[in-house]
Computed example of a mutant assay.
Amino acid sequence: MTTDYQQAREALGQRLRELRFSHPDGRLTGAQLSQRLGWSAAKVSKLENGRQTATADDLRAWAHATGQPEAFEELRSRLAGFESHIRSWRRQLASGHRAAQDAHNTAQAHATVLHAWESSWVVGILQTPDYARSIFTRFSELHRSPRDVEDAVRARIKRQELLYTGTRRYRIIMWEAVLRAMVCPPSVLASQLDRLAGVVGMDTVELGIVPFGASLKLPPGSGFWIYDERQVVTETWHSELWLEDADNVATYMRAWKTLEESAVYGADAHNVINAARRAL
């Protein structure tokens, strides 16, 4: 996935170099172009060699500086093509977490059957406001993003309205570590566990827990969502991946089904949740 992204970034860099070479008045050197743009020579080099991702503003300026403003739309399309798959947190969180939450709300609203695996924290659709607040606060600190925690919490909680429509089905499995991870104060985690216990048995949610003692055919790995077996959303510390390639989706679906083999449901899931609750 990262390789595909890097290849696309390098291809964009090659196209930028072509535009520099094909200036109507003659080929520009990198130094000449950097001077026209008011950029450092290093930035021009990084963009052309795929070591830095251009912004739309960078591409517009490049097209104009190379005397080919009509090339901007093509460049922007190339950028959108690979950024739609890998979305850096730095860019997504430039104005805070609310926008990213709205994007997820839209994606889930347009899906009918949603599969999720989570090994680190409670999935957003099942979080209490206080738990969500703790998560957003920690990630705001990590990414040094604008503090719009309350707006982000409201957006995430609004997503839970989707649980109460009869047309959508959530198939969610989580590792027991999620139930015990102290990513929030103990009192907040206790309320969150009570919330999960109440979800067991809902007709729109199939909640499974993979206990610590279960035999695992795969390591827990990172969490992910699968929307209607056509799109996968997963994340790393620096970016979020939105994948639509059929082979990638199939791989994640196999991973979900393999992890599900270790999950318990119903009363057994209740017992695992209650054991974590008592441990607090």
Rank of each mutant, 00 (worst) to 15 (best):
T2D: 15
Q6K: 08
R9L: 15
R9W: 07
A11G: 05
L12M: 11
Q14N: 08
R17H: 13
E18T: 11
S22G: 14
R27Q: 10
S34R: 15
R36I: 09
L37A: 04
G38D: 05
V44N: 05
E48Y: 00
N49K: 10
R51E: 12
R51Q: 14
A56S: 15
R60D: 09
A61T: 03
A65P: 03
A71V: 00
E73Q: 12
L75Q: 02
L75N: 01
S88V: 03
W89H: 09
R91P: 00
Q92R: 09
A99E: 14
A99N: 12
A100V: 08
Q101Y: 02
N105I: 14
Q108T: 12
Q108W: 14
A109T: 11
A111M: 02
L114W: 03
H115E: 15
H115T: 07
S120W: 00
L126V: 01
Q127W: 00
T128L: 11
P129L: 06
S134A: 15
R144V: 05
R147Q: 14
V149N: 13
E150S: 07
D151T: 04
R156P: 11
R156Q: 10
I157Y: 00
Q160H: 04
E161N: 10
L162V: 06
L163P: 03
Y164S: 11
T165P: 00
T165Q: 15
T167E: 11
T167V: 07
R169A: 03
Y170M: 06
I172M: 10
I172T: 06
M174F: 00
W175H: 13
E176L: 09
A181C: 09
P185V: 04
P186T: 07
S187R: 13
V188W: 04
V188M: 01
L193R: 07
D194R: 15
A197Y: 00
G198D: 11
I209M: 01
V210Y: 01
P211A: 04
P211Q: 06
G213A: 14
S215L: 08
L218F: 12
L218C: 04
G223R: 01
D228A: 10
V233A: 07
T234F: 02
E235S: 09
E235H: 10
T236R: 07
H238D: 15
L241D: 07
W242Q: 06
A246N: 11
D247N: 05
V249Y: 03
T251L: 10
R254G: 08
L259K: 08
E260K: 14
Y265H: 15
Y265N: 06
Y265P: 01
G266T: 07
I273K: 07
N274W: 03
N274A: 13
A275R: 08
A279Y: 09
